[in-house]
Amino acid sequence: MNNSEPKIVAFCCNWCSYAGADLAGTSRMQYPANLRIIRVMCSGRVNPVFVLKALRVGADGVLVLGCHPGDCHYLTGNYRTRRRLSITMKFMEYMGIEPERIQVSWCSASEGSRFAEVVTEVTADLKRISPNRLFND
């Protein structure tokens, strides 16, 4: 447990999870203010290098959010995200990064409460591990 507030970069897809975040906001649901959201058109846009770059420049964790499998606006974008980021997570664990630092989840436009829940959980995960000093010299 550490007292610092983790910085989390979240990649949210335009059609589901960004709208979900919006709903959480307009419904005035409470969730930790540790998130910096970057909107992408589809979670399939998220390249592993985005994730690593975020960690490199000081994010404590990266959360990628997309539509639920089967609900992608572009039909198969999130299936591809799932494959790509699964190997990213597994491989970075081998390199020695804590698995909590890279997380992927699904959240639909109507799931404001789920969005708040996921963000709360991820923030708690990152508070449990030490701040990101991986790329410090």
Partner: peptide, 28 residues
């Protein structure tokens, strides 16, 4: 993925393919 690179020329590239229900245990 139980996949071995370069064993089937007619298979789609690994990262261009998907199964609707896979890997969900790795997602939050």
């Amino acid at each position: 993925f139980q996949y071995r690179a370069g064993t089937d020329k007619d298979a789609p590239p690994l990262m261009a393919a998907y199964q609707p229900d896979e890997l969900e245990d790795l997602m939050r």
